[in-house]
Design a protein around this nucleic acid. Structure first.
Length: 490
RNA sequence: GUCCCCAUCGUCCAGAGGCCCAGGACGUGGCCCUUUCAAGGCCAAAACACGGGUUCGAAUCCCGUUGGGGACGCCA
């Protein structure tokens, strides 16, 4: 098969939403798998709703996910321009060509009257479609209206018969043309409608495969007819299922986060989002779930696309994030966590230098407990900064035993002499200290954890102590004893 | 209202006539590991919407019902 050309054509709403991202992802994956071309086109026909910032919002989302485009904004290409707002002349010419060839006609009807009729019908629970008043106007009528300077739209003349096309995911889909009215292709203000602009653009951009949302299925016959009217080759269509919210309704703002950048803000990894989205409505045909970007490119084919809608499951996204996080190397995590640590005032350039090995060990310890990069920083704060207080519930639960302070003093002394300062040696020393004092090791374990981390929860206290280091641990134990005797800081 | 699409565990998927009294994953419950919390391992509960066909045989094919979604604009 020769190189396919596919496209993603969002309208600039200011952000890339999850559904759009998934559609873009499928297109990208397909292009990359087949060695084809991925085109990005901005459908900014609606000038009032478009701006540079809005376009930037979309591009940011694409870039974050790593969906690079071969032709489009910022990179150009031989089939541009890639903004519909710069292509208006093309649409006007195309519409006039349709009139000339008899596939369309001028319509002088008043939009307000049409709207009124439509609404009246709707109130009775019926449908009203355009009555073709202008479909067969006599030449002199047309001339008269033109002379009067009446505004005119251009309508497509629906032929008799049926229109069908082969959908890659749904098979053959057929419509009776009678259910489709003579739709407007060019408005009276000379602006094209969606159907005209997509078709003209897809022809101009030599798009071979249209991969888009299910919601376009019923639009497709209109577009197929337009291709035919233009004498162009009809592309292959693949309509992918929609992404639904938990209430099974189309995903929208009221379902919470729908912008992919919102997930970035929440600390999700782009590779996790990528993996998760790829599996919403597509499957490799077996039970594999964890994929890298490269593995997905290798595995992706259009026939793995499902035909039924999918519900967005945030819990599974979290799981993917955790899995991808666990697979990140120490250096990869370092570069992503740096901004978070800076924000906390816990960053030190040495973490990349002299303390790099140490830092990687800290990360390994924290990793299995973290779902997000931010968790790593927040849950491991005590590795970088002395705790400034003790978690109340933990104190209540583990520090109320009488005589704890002298016991901690003895343990502190023993710890100061542990050699080598490894988790195993530290554990042995702690157990020995507990035994010689006739108390449970657990008492010292919990107290040490609180002293060193300020928290009731942490990785194995022996690992933590080994990494926090002898000096800081001894100091923190002493500080806890102070607090115990003072009582106030607890 | 008309037209179109869809229908396997709560959710995401596997299953393209016998391999299925249906498999994996998330989530849920339990156990192991661990004197914390996770991670990990093991186990469990959990689905072929319903009714008719076709066939020796149907989750898989056909028809209908029901349910869900989408489209019907001088919006995209």
């Amino acid at each position: 098969m020769s190189r396919p050309r596919v496209r993603f054509a969002p309208s600039p709403t200011g952000y890339l939403h999850v559904g759009g991202a998934r559609t873009a992802l499928f297109n990208w994956l397909y292009a990359r798998h087949e060695g084809g071309i991925f085109v990005l086109r901005i459908e900014d026909t609606d000038l009032e709703r478009s701006s540079d910032e809005m376009v930037a919002g979309i591009l940011d989302g694409m870039k974050w996910l790593g969906l690079d485009w071969d032709e489009g904004p910022e990179v150009g290409g031989a089939h541009g321009p890639y903004f519909q707002s710069e292509r208006l002349d093309r649409y006007r010419d195309a519409a006039e060509r349709l009139v000339a060839s008899g596939h369309a006609y001028y319509c002088y009807c008043n939009p307000d009257e049409i709207k009124a009729k439509r609404e009246a019908a709707e109130r009775e629970g019926k449908t009203w479609s355009y009555d073709r008043t202008c479909a067969n106007l006599a030449p002199e009528d047309v001339a008269a209206r033109e002379r009067a300077g009446q505004p005119r739209a251009i309508r497509f003349r629906m032929p008799e018969g049926r229109t069908s096309y082969d959908d890659v995911v749904h098979g053959t889909i057929e419509f009776d043309n009678a259910v489709i009215e003579d739709f407007v292709v060019l408005r009276s203000d000379r602006q094209p409608t969606y159907h005209l602009s997509v078709v003209v653009d897809d022809i101009d951009m030599a798009i071979t495969d249209v991969v888009r949302g299910d919601d376009h299925i019923s639009n497709t016959p209109k577009q197929v007819l337009l291709y035919q009217a233009f004498g162009a080759r009809v592309p292959r269509f693949a309509h992918v299922p929609l992404i639904l919210g938990p209430d099974k309704r189309r995903l929208s703002k009221r379902h919470g986060a729908t912008s992919v950048m919102e997930y970035e803000r929440q600390g999700f990894l782009p590779e996790a989002m990528f993996n998760f989205l790829a599996l919403l409505g597509w499957s490799p045909g077996d039970d594999r779930e964890l994929f890298t970007r490269e593995e997905l490119v290798a595995a992706f084919t259009l026939d793995g696309i499902a035909s039924s809608n999918a519900v967005f499951n945030p819990e599974k996204l979290e799981w993917f994030n955790q899995q991808h996080l666990a697979r990140l190397s120490g250096d990869e995590i370092t570069s992503r966590i740096e901004p978070v640590l800076r924000e906390m005032g816990a960053w030190d350039d040495e973490l990349r230098g002299a303390r790099r090995e140490w830092f990687h060990q800290v990360i390994e310890l924290l990793k299995p407990r973290a779902k997000k990069i931010r968790d790593l920083a927040e849950q491991g704060r005590y590795f970088f900064i002395d705790p400034d207080g003790y978690e109340e519930a933990a104190v209540k639960k583990h520090l109320s035993a009488p005589g704890l302070s002298p016991q901690l003093a003895a343990w502190g002394e023993a710890l100061a002499a542990v050699e080598p300062f490894t988790p195993a040696a530290i554990e042995a020393a702690l157990r020995a200290s507990a035994e010689s004092q006739g108390i449970k090791a657990a008492a010292l374990i919990h107290a040490t954890r609180i002293a060193v981390t300020g928290q009731g929860v942490s990785p194995s206290v022996f690992d933590v102590v080994a990494l926090v280091g002898r000096e800081r641990t001894v100091a923190r134990l002493a500080k806890l004893r102070e607090a115990l005797s003072g009582g106030a800081t607890l």
